[in-house]
């Protein structure tokens, strides 16, 4: 057998797996998004209706727009909060900073947990009867003692954001520590000697040099926030009502629970649009030449 044939043969299994699990479902979901596509209606998976699923989402589905709004607010809040906390932590933990690197090991712990597990544990901790946070908040801020966290639309949303920020801080912090560590120390020292205060060194010297890494971190986190599903599913299951129903959750519910696989596919493809822009921006930052 010639090397040429052999190398394709060796790669073939991997290509097949990727095709079967990623490419084919992608194509199939695009096809389904143009069909009636109801799981309980035989033949409807091949019954084409053009763009009707898409127009339906836009025109007649308040729940769709609700989930768009929830996802948007959720994304903005989690991205901003996670980035700010991670940046603050990274500044403290960077080598030569105030804390030794032993803390960095502890830091990775939340990131090692699966999002579903984070969801479950947060639900447990906010349980009105035996939740740790519920009790803690009750003791520290007595007016909050009787609050039923996950039953209130705003508070449930806040808990979701909190769980997400908590889970993502480690990863962002580690990336930012790397970015900070690669800033030449002499530039920071030169600025100090030149007369800059700590804040000005940060604003004029650290931040501009960290900008490329920061941009990558923000884009990545935005992608992850937009996709959020498992954590919400385990924590609030979109509720109360639809207060925490993100797009992914909405898609899952329509597709799997209501069996409207055609409609769910069309919404999924609508979500692809912002993702493409973000991925493009990400790729530009990561693979740019300079």
């Amino acid at each position: 057998m010639r090397d040429r044939t052999l190398k394709y043969l060796l790669v073939a299994p991997a290509v097949l797996v990727v095709f079967a699990t990623t490419i084919w479902p992608l194509i199939e979901s695009l096809r389904l998004s143009f069909t009636v596509g109801r799981l309980n209606k035989p033949g409807s998976l091949d019954q084409y209706i053009g763009w009707e699923n898409y127009t339906w989402a836009f025109l007649y589905e308040p729940a769709f727009w609700n989930s768009v709004t929830v996802t948007a607010i959720y994304t903005v809040l989690t991205v901003v909060l996670t980035t700010l906390f991670a940046l603050a932590l990274a500044l403290l933990l960077v080598p030569g900073g105030r804390f030794r690197s032993g803390v960095q090991t502890l830091l990775i712990l939340p990131f090692a947990m699966s999002p579903a597990l984070i969801g479950v544990s947060f639900r447990f901790m906010f349980n009105p009867e035996f939740g740790l946070f519920d009790a803690l908040f009750g003791v520290m801020i007595p007016p909050l003692a009787d609050v039923s966290w996950l039953a209130d639309p705003v508070l449930a949303f806040a808990v979701c954001v909190m769980a997400d920020v908590w889970g993502w801080i480690p990863f962002l912090t580690l990336v930012l520590i790397g970015g900070l560590a690669s800033i030449p120390r002499e530039t920071l020292e030169a600025a100090q000697v030149d007369g800059a205060s700590g804040w000005r060194v940060f604003r004029d010297i650290t931040l501009p040099q960290l900008a490329p890494v920061l941009a990558v971190v923000i884009i990545l986190k935005t992608i992850f926030s937009l996709k959020t599903f498992d954590q919400i599913f385990m924590l609030t299951n979109g509720g109360p009502g639809t207060a925490t129903q993100t797009l992914s959750h909405y898609i899952y519910f329509n597709g799997m629970k209501y069996g409207q696989i055609g409609y769910a596919s069309s919404v999924a493809w609508l979500m692809v649009i912002p993702m493409i822009f973000l991925t493009y921006a990400y790729a530009r930052y990561v693979f740019r030449k300079n």
Binding site: T187, E189, A190, Q192, V193, D204, P208
Partner: peptide, 27 residues
């Protein structure tokens, strides 16, 4: 350092890479 009124030249120059030469000198 900022209150000592000294100027320092570093071994690896310590120039601000994101600034032009003008801005470096003016900083």
């Amino acid at each position: 350092p900022k209150d000592r009124d000294v100027a320092m030249v570093f071994q690896n120059y310590g120039l601000y890479p994101h600034m032009t030469v003008y801005d470096n000198i003016a900083y």
